[in-house]
């Protein structure tokens, strides 16, 4: 079990068995209630471990010195499948950008400011065909609207976080980081800073791979070692982690079938949002119906 942070127990907010926010002993101002404020040698009253807050009596904080390194390493250990999966896609994007007449700096700038793969591909092909700024922005908006749903889902685990943290965290919400962080949060073994580290490692891999692609990535053989399948395999595993009962399996199956049907009917990627909304609502209705009918929990 890893020790996340050492905190004053009375200030620990417990949310669904998950401890969050802390303050130094004697420090009661609400604005200072965040993980990062502890320093080595601060005297604290409890430790927060993965899922529970333990009272240990007055003790010294000793983990703090290594906290940043610990957070970055944990983030890397968790995000490597994303980073690996991004590489072939990022290289391909860089090559496409280069062919459309963009230099590596311009490619990197788009990856840094937008950080959303599929919309970047579409934007570059729209740029090559001479589309207007307005229509590129509208298309990007529609493609990336699905993050709204992911962000709403993540917020359950980020209650009490400050606006600065949330504004930084929002930047890194992608299909992949959402899925990985959600799984770890769900297992009660995750903290917001490690989630942020996952976002930023993935971001670094994305920016780096697109820039490398823009510098001549076509020399790297496509399809090496099945790396093109990294993200698909990762999503399969993450879906398995989400299936914690019959209602999740039914919701997932319904979403999958709906998504395929909608993907065949409507061009673009609005099928993700539509299928997810419909399936989650149907799953929710089914759960309520079953609870009412039999008085049992599905």
């Amino acid at each position: 079990m890893t020790i996340d942070l050492v905190v004053h127990c009375s200030k620990v907010h417990v949310y669904d068995g998950w401890c969050e926010t802390a303050s130094r002993e004697g420090d009661h101002s609400p604005k200072n209630r965040s993980e990062g404020l502890l320093h080595s040698g601060d005297r604290c009253l409890a430790v927060v471990t993965g899922s529970k807050c333990e009272f240990l009596g007055l003790m010294e904080c000793v983990r703090v010195n290594t906290r940043i390194r610990f957070i970055l390493l944990e983030g890397l250990r968790t995000s490597w499948p994303i980073c690996m999966g991004y590489f072939p896609i990022g290289l391909a994007f860089g090559v496409l950008g280069q062919k459309a007449g963009l230099n590596p700096f311009q490619i990197g700038m788009m990856s840094l400011l937008v950080f959303a793969g599929s919309s970047q591909f579409i934007a570059v092909s729209m740029l090559s065909s001479g589309a207007e700024v307005m229509s590129i922005a509208m298309t990007t908006f529609v493609i990336n609207l699905r993050h709204f749903l992911m962000s709403s889902s993540l917020v359950v685990y980020l209650q009490q976080a400050g606006w600065k943290f949330l504004s930084a965290f929002a930047y890194g919400i992608t299909d992949e980081s959402f899925a990985v962080n959600m799984t770890r949060f769900r297992a009660n073994e995750w903290g917001k800073y490690r989630a942020l580290a996952v976002n930023q490692w993935a971001n670094a891999a994305w920016v780096a791979s697109t820039v490398i692609g823009g510098m001549g990535g076509e020399f790297i053989p496509a399809g090496s070692f099945g790396i093109d399948y990294a993200l698909s395999a990762m999503f399969i595993a993450l879906l398995v982690f989400q299936l914690r009962g019959r209602i999740y399996v039914m919701t997932a199956l319904l979403a999958g079938v709906l998504a395929v049907a909608l993907a065949l009917l409507i061009p673009g990627n609005s099928y993700v949002v539509l299928a997810s909304l419909l399936a989650a609502t149907a799953g929710f209705a089914l759960k309520k119906y079953a609870q009412k009918k039999k008085g049992i929990h599905v």
């Binding site: 699905r146 749903l149 992911m150 709403s152 889902s153 299909d175 959402f178 899925a179 959600m182 799984t183 769900r186 698909s232 999503f235 399969i236 993450l238 879906l239 989400q242 299936l243 209602i247 999740y248 919701t251 997932a252 199956l253 319904l254 979403a255 999958g256 079938v257 709906l258 998504a259 395929v260 993907a263 099928y271 993700v272 299928a275 997810s276 909304l277 399936a279 989650a280 799953g283 929710f284």
Partner: peptide
């Protein structure tokens, strides 16, 4: 229920 739904909606197609 959203994560299971989104993941499926991404993978199946």
């Amino acid at each position: 229920l959203i994560p299971a739904a989104i993941l499926s909606a991404l993978i199946f197609p």
